[in-house]
Each structure stands twice: as C-alpha cells, then as structure tokens.
Design a protein around this nucleic acid. Structure first.
Length: 487
RNA sequence: GGCCCCAUGGUCAAGCGGUUAAGACAUCGCCCUUUCACGGCGGUAACACCGGUUCAAAUCCGGUUGGGGUCACCA
C-alpha cells in the first residue's frame, strides 16, 4: 500500500489579530506538509457569527504572505475540496446532514433545553468548594421520537448533541503526548449543531478534516481535553482518525498563556515593533521544537527540510522577547544592503532632516541594533547637539579630563579649520599627525573630539566618522561649544 | 474543585540506563578598539522533592510538591 499523500490545514477563525500561537500552528502545519511534499490548505472557520470580524481575514492572509506560509489550497485556490470557508459549506446543509446521520445511529440527539435550564443545571450541582459541574444531564435523550418530532414541528429551537457513553474509557493517541485515556463519564455531550443551525467548531472540524482528507492535525494544547470527544465522533462515523499533534502552549514571563496584555502576542504587534518576519518565523519554530543538529538559525526553506514533528517538546515554552531581539539583530546583520536600507532609511529620515549621508549613517548602526526603531536614539545627536555635562570629557581609561580635553580642542580647532576637505582620510591624517607631534595616546585627542561633536557618552562610530558625516561647519561649531563649556 | 498534561541553569533547550549533564539567549570578566557595538576567548548557573527498580537513574515506576490546560449554543 502506498503512503497516502500528506495534507495539512491551517484553520483559523477570523476573530482578530493573528496570535503567535496561531502562527506556530500554521508554521508546523506548513512544515509537516512541505517536508513530505504534501499539501497545505487554508480553511476559514467562521462559524461564530458573533465574534466574526471581517478585517481579520485580511490580517490572516497578509500574515501568511509576509511570513511565507503560502497555502496550496484555500478560498482563492480551489484544489477540489472546496468550499474552504465554513459559512459557505454550511449553505449546502452538509453539517446538518451529517449530524442527522449521527442521530439515526443513536450517536447524537436533539436537545430542546433552554438556556435557563442549562444555567440552573450548572448552578444546582456544585462541589463543596462551590465550583460548577458543567456536564449536561442527557435530559433530552429520553425524549421519544414522537416528542422530538412534535417539538420540531412546533418550531422549538433546538441543538443537536453528541451522545457519549457514560461507562468505560476512551483512549486517543497524540504524537507528542502519547496515549491518553479518560473515563467516558468525563465526556460531556457536546453540542454539534447550534440553535442557529451552524455547526460548532468541534463538529465542523471533524467533518471538514475528513472531507478534505487531512492527514495531520496540529493544534494547541488547550484542545487536548476535547480530543477524546473527537475520537468518539470519528468512531461514530467510522472514519479514520488523523494524526494528532498537540503543541504545548506558549506562555509569557509569568508562565501564563501569552495574551494581548504582553504587547507582543500577535504577529502584527511584532512586525510593527520592527521585527523581521523571517526572524519571527525562525524564533517561533524553535519555541517548542528543536532540530537534531546543533543549530538555530533557519530560513523557512531550511526548516522545510529539517522539520520533524516527532521532536516537538511537551512542556510549555516562555516567549522570550529578549532572545527574539537577539535573533532579529542577527538577521539584520546578515541583510543585504538594498533591503537593509529599505528598512533603515525611513527610520533615519524620521530623525534626521539635514542633508547628511544617510546610507553612511545606516551602515554605522547596522551592527548596533536589534530592531529598527533602535536606530532613533542612536543617531539623534547627528541632527542636533544635545546639551551635555562636561564630566563626559573625563574618561579614566582614555586618561582624559577637562583640562587636557580643553587643550586638545583648542589646539585641534585651527588644524581642522585649515582642512578644506572633511573626509575620513584627511581627518585621520590630521589627528594622527597631532598625536605623533605631541607624543600622546590616541584617546587624548580622539575622546574629547568625539565627545564635543556628539555630546554623547556612546556613539555609533568614532570622531572621524561623526565629523565626516556632520561636515566641517557643524563640527567646528560643536567643537567651539565644547571649548566654551570647558573654559 | 473534577479531569488531563507537564517538570534539566533566569529563558529556549540537548539528553532516551553508564556523559566532566551539550549548545543558544541573558548575565559577568578578559581581548580587540578613539566610545559603543560587532568579533574572539573565558566564567557563574540546572536534572523540584521522596521513595522504589537496577551493578548503575536526569533518563524507568510510584507518590509528594509546584506549574499549566480544560470544564460555553467560543474557537
């Protein structure tokens, strides 16, 4: 028997921004498919009309586009398994038909219980500690066929519930967690069809995955507890269960599930904060999974080759923004000039209005940033000399203080004024000559100059680079300010 | 609270019965250097606890503790 073609799916519900947990799920689905030369499909699960937000769809598409997780089949790419949007599939009445099949088999039943009854059900049965017991009591299971029909004819609102056994156990298999067995008495009779006629997420999922011939299902660990009920559904239909891959949750620094509060829970947030999509993908791939080889920088293409879902971790991982920043910095350093400028120049222009060599400035900060907005505070002094404390002229290691700094500035001023060209070469030549002449350490000359022209403790580049960028006039002006401050 | 899951440095993690318990981020120190950064070198730092099984346990089993998840006509 030949191996069935691998088909995976990313099935988001369009309810808001794309969470990094969703990105990881999508990524793993994508990688599992690509690794086996399989098909990655996009399916939109919009069965919740309450929470549906139209823009969310665009966000998802855009996120997938920039991260490179492009689907092989989906709403815009019919592969013969459509429609790929659940609200459209719903129109065919297919979910209802399948639900009715289950009713026929006695694996499901109509339920006419009101919201009030359900609420009182939960309220009445409480544990000693006052916690709720949420299981439905199978009240409507006892209704006769005639009673059901009568209610239906009367137009009573209803739902269809799964009829789970109350004795015995159910075991399901998960690739990362192994076999998990639960008592059937724990299984709630979950709703399959809502009173608005829409299928619930759980039901639509099973139907669609089967119909779309999905072979591997990746999802968050939060769905682990509903997995046994899925098994019963597959069993009831007599369908083959796909390979389940449950991923550990991603948590924040407090080890709680990553939420909007943390400020970087969505891919959108991250991109807005100046992170590169490839860095985010690389980082997220490593959250809960590790390759066999000793390495952690991977392009999406390389991940496709090495990804092995059997190496997914079981324990929750903390989303460490500090390490993401580091990784992003690594990606920035490796960027080719053209693309780098594309990202860096706009940021530089937001700070510098003067006619400076902006690409030169960009080159200077390339190894000094982790995300692009970092550039701002690094280069603000180019635009305007900040007011600074003369204590900055004193540097122990450079052996400088206000006195010798003043001397340096006073003696260098005429030499610099005499220069007709403020190139790096000329500047270096001039300073070196002075240093040799006075038989002093480099720092005695360069530190005061750098301080005077920047007014900052730390700068990207040294005195030569800064003076070359701001030019003769501005340099002289700033050195005079320094002399004034020191006098 | 019931049920399920998890447990190696601050964080991500390798490890599948015998290792000096990798590596990365962070942190600290040194080198390079006109500052900072880059780069190079080095240091601090971990098997939650208690019992088994075994000649041998981070690795297997049980319990304890801790953490997480889930208990919707949401996904």
């Amino acid at each position: 028997m030949s191996k069935a073609k691998v088909r995976t799916r990313f099935a988001p519900s369009p309810t808001g921004r794309m969470h990094v947990g969703n990105l990881r799920t999508a990524l793993y689905e994508y990688l599992i498919a690509k690794h086996e030369d399989g098909t990655f499909v996009l399916r939109i699960e919009d069965t919740d009309q309450e929470r549906f937000v139209p823009e969310a769809l665009d966000i998802i598409r855009e996120t997938m586009r920039v991260t490179g997780l492009v689907e092989d089949e989906g709403p815009d790419k019919d592969g013969g398994f459509g429609p790929y949007v659940q609200s459209e599939r719903m129109k065919t009445g297919m979910y209802m038909d399948y639900a009715k099949q289950l009713v026929e088999k006695g694996e499901a039943y109509y339920c006419f219980c009101t919201k009030e009854r359900l609420d009182s059900l939960r309220g009445s049965e409480t544990t000693e500690s006052g916690k709720e017991i949420a299981k439905y009591d199978k009240h409507c299971l006892s209704l006769s066929k005639e009673e059901v029909q009568k209610n239906l004819d009367a137009g009573m609102p209803y739902v269809i519930r799964q009829n789970n056994p109350t004795e015995g156990t159910t075991t399901f298999h998960d690739v990362v967690f192994g076999d998990i067995t639960v008592d059937n008495s724990e299984l709630d009779d979950m709703i399959l069809i809502k009173s608005d006629g829409y299928p619930t997420y759980n039901f639509a999922n099973v139907i669609d995955d089967h119909l779309m011939e999905i072979t591997h299902v990746v999802r968050g660990n939060e769905y682990l507890s509903s997995a046994p009920k899925y098994n019963r559904l597959y069993e009831a239909f007599g369908w083959e269960v796909p390979v389940y891959v449950h991923c550990p949750v991603i948590t924040d620094e407090t080890h709680k599930k990553l939420s909007k509060r943390s400020g970087h829970s969505s891919v959108e947030d991250l991109l807005e904060q100046g992170f590169l999509p490839e860095a985010v993908v690389n980082f997220v791939a490593l959250l809960g999974w590790s390759p066999e080889e000793e390495r952690e920088m991977y392009t999406l293409k390389e991940l496709e080759e090495t990804f092995d879902y059997k190496r997914i971790n079981k324990s929750p991982a903390v989303f460490d923004i500090v390490k993401l920043r580091w990784m992003n910095g690594e990606y920035i350093k490796k960027m080719d000039d053209e693309r780098y400028y594309e990202y860096a120049l706009p940021v530089i222009k937001s700070v510098i209005t003067k006619d400076y060599d902006l690409k030169y400035i960009a080159d200077l900060v390339k190894t000094r940033i982790e995300v692009f907005p970092d550039i701002k505070e690094l280069i603000d002094f180019f635009e305007e000399l900040p007011d600074y404390d003369i204590a900055m002229y004193t540097h122990k290691k450079m052996k400088t203080n206000s006195e010798n700094s003043l001397v340096t500035l006073q003696e260098m001023l005429p030499r610099l004024e005499a220069l007709d060209e403020f190139s790096r070469e000329k500047l270096e030549e001039t300073c070196k000559a002075y240093i040799a002449e006075k038989e002093i350490k480099n720092g005695i000359c360069l530190w005061p100059l750098r301080t005077a022209v920047s007014g900052k403790q730390f700068t990207p580049g040294g005195a030569y680079e800064i003076m070359e960028i701001i030019g003769k006039e501005e340099s002289i002006k700033r050195i005079k300010v320094g002399i004034e401050k020191l006098s």
